[in-house]
Amino acid sequence: MHEIGRSPVSLALGGLLALAAAMGIGRFVYTPILPYMADGLSMPAQDGGLIASANFLGYLAGALLGSSSRLRGDPRTWFLGALVASALTSAAMAFTAQVEMFLVIRFMSGVASAFVLVFSAALVLERLTLSGRADLSALFFAGVGIGIAFSAILIAFLGHIAATWEHLWLASAGATLVFAGGAAVLVPKTTPALTETTKPNLQDAPKPEASGSLAGLFIAYGLFGFGYVITATFVSTIARTVPALQPAEPWVWLCVGVCAAPSILIWNRIANRIRPRPAFALACVLEAAGVAMTALSQHPLVFLFGAALLGVTFMGITALGLTQARRHAEALGPDRARTLLAGVTASFGLGQVAGPWFAGQLHAMTGSFQAPSLAAAAALIAAGLIVLR
């Protein structure tokens, strides 16, 4: 088992399982469970949006805390502990019906998700680079999409057999623990030894590009966070509440996850061909089109295609934005790199926090998710234009 853990592919798979558990399930399983909670608790959309915002606020706090140089300790211990915490917070959702408790639990879940991402990425990506297999980072990040797809299948199956929303949360917690066990086995405590022939393979990473406006990057990344998260939170709810779209509900979140899994590999290659900034702008436009389709169309196939566009772009935009941030960090020097990356993370996180709350409030006023979804599409277009300039 120790030898398996030293394989770069197994290491990447261990990281994939960690992200699938903490991000694909722990962070995003709320989307397919939300319609069941709304029905079972008669919960209005503004409460659903507020709970989602609490999770994203916790993710923001966790990302900033996890990136702090003051936080010491073994990254493996941190991310495995955070995986257990993610499972526990999912299970805790089944034992209350109070919105205030949901807010606290989902905030804690957001912190745990961020810790898994920060510490597993720091550990796995460093070891992959030292092993000369940095190209396997795309496999590592595919965990988010695979976790989303898995959670979609799990929730659709349990919903089909009439499981309650409480059972859905408990099943998600159990799945998280299983994935965490796989990550613990595949990510060893020791670092693979280097050989003289070991050379990093970066052929799939975007090539460096001269940095543009730093302020523009901050604004664009915040707008992207706002733009993607509204549909990413409410797309299953939209499918359930629009009668013509109900046949698409079991498939919509699965569609997002399946398309998200290979998206970073796809957008890295696109960025190598047309440069990262135009690639970022193109992805924003495609995502805006997908968001608009989920808002305006009542045809299930068009709705699913819009969800597919969301899935194939949101992780790619995330990676491309961080690529641009690293370009700025290289120019500013190592002393300010951590501060810059924390600032970009904060901008993105604030957009994520604002999106679900805004959508819930606007839904309460209009009775529809159409207006907030179109606002999200406009924000994505604006983000693409800012980065392109």
Results as ranks from 00 to 15, higher is better:
residue 143 G to H: 02
residue 204 D to G: 13
residue 141 F to Y: 02
residue 181 G to K: 03
residue 197 T to A: 14
residue 209 E to M: 14
residue 146 I to H: 06
residue 154 L to I: 08
residue 163 A to Q: 01
residue 211 S to K: 15
residue 163 A to W: 07
residue 184 A to N: 07
residue 162 A to W: 11
residue 159 G to K: 11
residue 203 Q to K: 14
residue 180 A to R: 01
residue 201 N to W: 09
residue 201 N to T: 10
residue 173 A to R: 00
residue 173 A to L: 04
residue 183 A to F: 03
residue 170 L to Q: 06
residue 188 P to E: 00
residue 187 V to R: 04
residue 170 L to I: 06
residue 169 W to H: 11
residue 192 P to D: 09
residue 202 L to W: 12
residue 196 E to Q: 13
residue 178 V to P: 03
residue 149 A to Q: 03
residue 210 A to Y: 06
residue 204 D to C: 06
residue 196 E to Y: 12
residue 211 S to C: 09
residue 151 S to P: 00
residue 176 T to V: 14
residue 156 A to I: 03
residue 171 A to N: 01
residue 169 W to V: 03
residue 172 S to L: 10
residue 174 G to Y: 10
residue 182 G to R: 01
residue 141 F to P: 00
residue 184 A to H: 04
residue 189 K to F: 10
residue 165 W to C: 11
residue 176 T to W: 10
residue 158 L to V: 01
residue 175 A to I: 02
residue 196 E to P: 11
residue 155 I to T: 08
residue 195 T to E: 13
residue 168 L to M: 11
residue 176 T to A: 12
residue 145 G to L: 07
residue 176 T to G: 06
residue 171 A to C: 03
residue 175 A to V: 03
residue 143 G to D: 00
residue 202 L to V: 12
residue 144 V to F: 12
residue 175 A to L: 10
residue 146 I to F: 05
residue 191 T to P: 15
residue 211 S to H: 09
residue 159 G to H: 14
residue 192 P to G: 14
residue 153 I to V: 14
residue 142 A to L: 08
residue 191 T to F: 13
residue 210 A to T: 06
residue 197 T to L: 05
residue 167 H to M: 09
residue 156 A to N: 05
residue 204 D to E: 08
residue 152 A to T: 02
residue 204 D to H: 04
residue 200 P to Y: 04
residue 158 L to P: 00
residue 153 I to A: 05
residue 205 A to S: 14
residue 185 V to W: 11
residue 201 N to E: 04
residue 166 E to Q: 13
residue 165 W to F: 15
residue 157 F to N: 15
residue 166 E to D: 13
residue 195 T to V: 11
residue 199 K to P: 13
residue 148 I to G: 05
residue 158 L to R: 01
residue 168 L to N: 02
residue 143 G to R: 12
residue 170 L to C: 04
residue 159 G to S: 05
residue 206 P to Y: 00
residue 170 L to R: 11
